[in-house]
């Protein structure tokens, strides 16, 4: 298969790469509203888009991570609710994950990806909780998430279950994507 692809025109390879990447995002989006057995813990589902952002950013630059986070955050805004926006938390996740790569003690295997996803899920839930708490008072009265204590109670439940589930499901997204991008990279490498 690799030979087939390496014989293609660089433009074709590029568009194929784009299609596969966009397709993987679409798959993550489609699986988000789904609740199959093993995908739900305390009514919380794994954060698929966060897994994708981590898988994307782990071997890329800070900017690429940030842009991916913003784009997926905007899409998730459209699919759930846009206030507070998801773009902030996902962009920060993308930036931090891209930063992590420089540190030598993180090796690229499943366990470390799962660990990163675990930490980033907790972080993303915390950022969202902060966003909820920082909402102006008059909006908060209407859009009331209840008292602030309740937000943080929800945060505990959401961050923990989402982190556990996301880290367990992370290899499902990471492994095939990583293989694909490695293959594309090894084809593009000799040419450039």
């Amino acid at each position: 298969m690799m030979n087939d692809i390496s014989r293609m025109h660089p433009r074709t390879i590029l568009s194929l790469n784009c299609a596969v990447t966009a397709g993987s995002v679409l798959l993550c989006l489609l699986v988000s509203p789904m609740r199959l057995p093993g995908m739900e813990l305390l009514t919380v589902n794994p954060n698929w888009l966060l897994i994708w952002v981590v898988a994307w950013s782990v071997k890329r630059t800070v900017w690429q991570g940030a842009i991916a986070g913003i784009a997926l955050g905007l899409i998730q805004d459209g699919m759930s609710y846009h206030n507070p926006t998801h773009a902030v938390s996902l962009a920060i996740v993308g930036i931090l994950t891209a930063k992590l790569q420089k540190q030598r003690y993180i090796r690229e295997d499943f366990i470390s990806i799962s660990l990163i996803v675990f930490g980033m899920s907790v972080l993303a839930a915390t950022i969202t909780a902060i966003q909820f708490s920082l909402q102006p008072q008059e909006i908060a009265a209407h859009l009331a998430r209840g008292p602030i204590g309740e937000i943080w109670l929800n945060h505990q439940r959401i961050s923990l279950s989402s982190a556990i589930l996301s880290s367990l499901w992370a290899p499902v997204v990471y492994y095939p994507l990583n293989r694909w991008w490695e293959m594309i990279g090894s084809i593009e490498q000799p040419q450039s």
């Binding site: 784009c18 679409l26 989006l29 489609l30 509203p33 789904m34 842009i67 991916a68 913003i70 784009a71 997926l72 905007l74 899409i75 805004d77 459209g78 699919m79 846009h82």
Partner: peptide, 29 residues
């Protein structure tokens, strides 16, 4: 160009409230 494309399509999806994604989702399910 790619970055602009990605961000603008993300914005479009956001403004249409993910209509495209949900329509595909419904077709598949």
């Amino acid at each position: 160009g790619l970055v602009t494309l990605v961000l603008s399509s993300a914005l479009v999806i956001r403004h249409t409230q993910g209509a495209l994604v949900f329509e595909i989702y419904r077709l598949l399910t």
